[in-house]
Design a protein around this nucleic acid. Structure first.
Lengths: 219, 219
DNA sequence: TTAAGGCTTCAGAGTTCTTTCAGAGAGGCG
DNA sequence: CGCCTCTCTGAAAGAACTCTGAAGCCTTAA
């Protein structure tokens, strides 16, 4: 009952090194050299764990992570990020990663974290709260006070999560489009989703617009 | 303008070691030995940065972190977590921490991360103050003493910022028009916005007219 | 293949901000 | 005290920004 690990890493030597070591640790390893292949591989046989390099040509780690979660992958995802790229780590968690290791890494570190993730299993339900709302990242639902669960679509959840990560801090349309749409969208799309969130979240209003700047979460 | 750091750590030797080293690094250090005291200390003088041990008797680091954020603390929070406690790190970030260091840590690591956070924080949420007013450049709001937040429009904020950059220094209409309107406007526009700021900022008056010259900020 | 739901864009309505003007008000000087 | 200049303010037109309904496209599920 070995955990199946999928390694996604474009650098062949690193990939092989990981592969070798994780196999030696008793994991059932498969690997992919880019984002597209990773998604295909995950489609074929859902891995229990994924080791994902953030920086890759083509579909990058964040995008892969997002897609995996959208497809219902619930296992642990360990990101490999560049040193000091704090933003990567945060975006990684936003995209649905569970933990990360900074490159260059000690292989023991990766092994230890994977074991931890595997132990933790898939019963994890990450949630974030602010004021009287709680967003369940596992099920894309929000609870507000005593009100029953409100179901969100993928985009709605992504935007709400972005706002909840930094409450009382303005998020510009550009920043949101960068984070959620990878820069490819009309600014108005943010307004559209803010409107939907406002309607779904009900009263009293939580999302405040700061004219000329963007939107922010505030109780 | 040293960054004020609050250290929250129940283990006295570790706390003293941190305190000594961070002071040597030029931080303005205060410390607390448990969660309750930490919140009280943060209440008294809002720190720019917080170093927070996750594992503490009573109110633990995660709870403290959450409370601090709820209270509007916007500075960087660095968590100290136990090795292999992956859940702690993730929950820490979810609770609002900005980064973490694994125990046992090298003091250099802590110092480096704090500097990084201090740098990041300063351009994420910049604020400038003079007398009893504080202008939040991120949200275009002003707070005056105990009064609630006053929202400014883009032009109002630009003008107030200009005045606050050099308090007690006269800014001529031409200079203001040059800086804010790129030279394309009637001098009277400045009067118009000074009037609005005066009304919004209330009593006692802060913007003084220097007849024949311009305006200046003075308590 | 159809149906349903989500995603995105567009255009018009609604709201808020910006700018100008003109006249009232205040200050300084002979 | 009177005059002249500079400053202040209300009103209003115009510009900019935000919000929302509607419609088309795409993906997924049946």
């Amino acid at each position: 009952m070995a955990s199946r690990v999928l390694i996604v890493e474009d650098d062949a030597p690193v990939r092989r090194m990981l592969s070798r070591n994780l196999e030696a640790e008793g994991f059932d390893v498969s690997s992919a050299s880019d984002g597209g292949r990773a998604l295909a591989a995950a489609e074929r046989s859902t891995p229990d764990l994924v080791v994902l390099d953030v920086a890759m040509p083509g579909l990058d780690g964040l995008a892969v992570c997002r897609r995996l979660r959208e497809k219902g992958m619930t296992g642990g995802i360990l990101m490999l990020t560049a040193r000091d790229a704090v933003d990567d780590r945060v975006s990684g968690l936003v995209a649905g990663a569970d933990d990360y290791v900074v490159k260059p890494f000690a292989i023991e570190e990766v092994v230890a974290r994977l074991h931890a993730l595997s132990r933790r299993g898939s019963d994890l339900r990450r949630r974030i709260s602010y004021a009287d709302i709680t967003l369940d990242l596992g099920t894309n639902t929000v609870e507000r006070g005593e009100r029953g669960p409100i179901e969100l679509t993928g985009r709605e959840r992504a935007l709400l999560e972005l706002l909840m990560r930094d409450p009382r801090t303005v998020v510009s349309r550009d920043a949101a489009i960068e984070a959620i749409w990878q820069g490819a969208a009309v600014p108005n799309i943010v307004d559209r989703y803010v409107a939907r969130l406002r309607r779904k979240l009900g009263e009293p209003p939580l999302i405040r617009t700061v004219r000329g700047v963007g939107f922010m979460l505030e109780a």
